[in-house]
Design a protein around this nucleic acid. Structure first.
Lengths: 177, 177
DNA sequence: GATATTTGATATATTCAATAACAATTACCA
DNA sequence: TGGTAATTGTTATTGAATATATCAAATATC
């Protein structure tokens, strides 16, 4: 199980490399005799650059956190568990926009890797309280450091103030649009 | 074929509505006695708000362009065909980051709806030049108008200058990160 | 106490994305 | 020139992400 997920991470990282190379090739051809295709107006619609930026960011996150074999989704679960102890599966999944049925398999993977555990709630014996294990906290701590490098690269590209403005606007879109 | 795709679009729009309701419920509980879960630091990592904003934007795009039954991906293909006539499948697909094998089915749908057509190239009889039909141009023209409303709502939320800055930063991430 | 709801789980379907392989055509080059 | 390599569109197939319906167990509601 964990091995399958690990392979998936590695394969995603490999694909990221391929896409990067393709993009680099594009830039190269843009400057040379062959004219590259122009997105044109497409780049003026928010969805197009937004989706491409999201793919690029996830690629880089995956690459940076590859030593710990964590996907962005898995990282987000560990972060949420750390911040919100004593919550059950439904609450965690719902906060992340993950449907409960799909969250079961996600948790299975994390639990099989010893990063978190299901505990039967004393109050409500239907629900499983999800807790971070010591190993989970340790892995999360290291993941935060690796992800911080990824974030630092972005800050380097945009500048600190611009990055903050970007975060604010994206959050606003996610919550108020 | 076209009907299947049409259903897919409608279903995606329906799901979008559900997610919006769930989010609204979250905001409601945040203000009431029950404390909502906090993403905490997670919101400081670019990937999290970026992904959520992308989902929200795509939801709204889908809703706005629903009368024409076009997904963001299909819209991007039509836009690219309009801007770059005389290109073959490989070139169009590559520019949009779509793998050639997956682009075949996408084109099949658009062609079966009469929005574009494959033309054998005179120079290179291996390749298919993809052209917009008159109907394709007509649908694209209407789609642009619907999408413009969607974009206007975003401008209303962020302000014109901020939206421009957002676009610039996302494009920079997509191309330079 | 009977009925409805919630929780975690299973099974399943669909979409998106990725790889391998193939025939037809073209490019290369010895 | 002829033989090999590369390219194009295509098919088949796989895996990952996302969505729905349904179920048993536990709880809530009335």
């Amino acid at each position: 199980m964990a091995d399958l997920k690990a392979m998936a991470v590695s394969r995603a990282a490999a694909n990221a490399v391929k896409r990067s190379r393709a993009a680099a090739k594009d830039l190269a051809t843009d400057g040379s005799g062959e004219a590259g295709l122009q997105p044109g107006e497409l780049a003026e619609f928010i969805g197009y650059p937004l989706k491409r930026a999201q793919l690029r960011i996830f690629e880089d996150f995956l690459r940076c956190v590859a030593p710990l074999q964590l996907t962005p989704a898995q990282f987000s679960v560990l972060m949420l568990l750390d911040r919100n102890p004593g919550r059950n599966q439904t609450e965690i999944a719902h906060t992340l926009g993950i449907l409960r049925p799909n969250f079961v398999a996600m948790l299975d993977v994390l639990e099989s890797r010893g990063l978190c555990a299901r505990m039967r709630s004393a109050n409500d014996r239907r629900s499983h309280i999800v807790v971070l294990t010591d190993k989970g906290r340790s892995v999360l701590s290291r993941a935060r450091k690796l992800a911080a490098k990824h974030e630092a690269r972005l800050t380097e590209l945009l500048g600190s103030a611009n990055r903050a403005a970007l975060l604010a606007m994206l959050s606003k879109i996610a919550t108020e649009f």
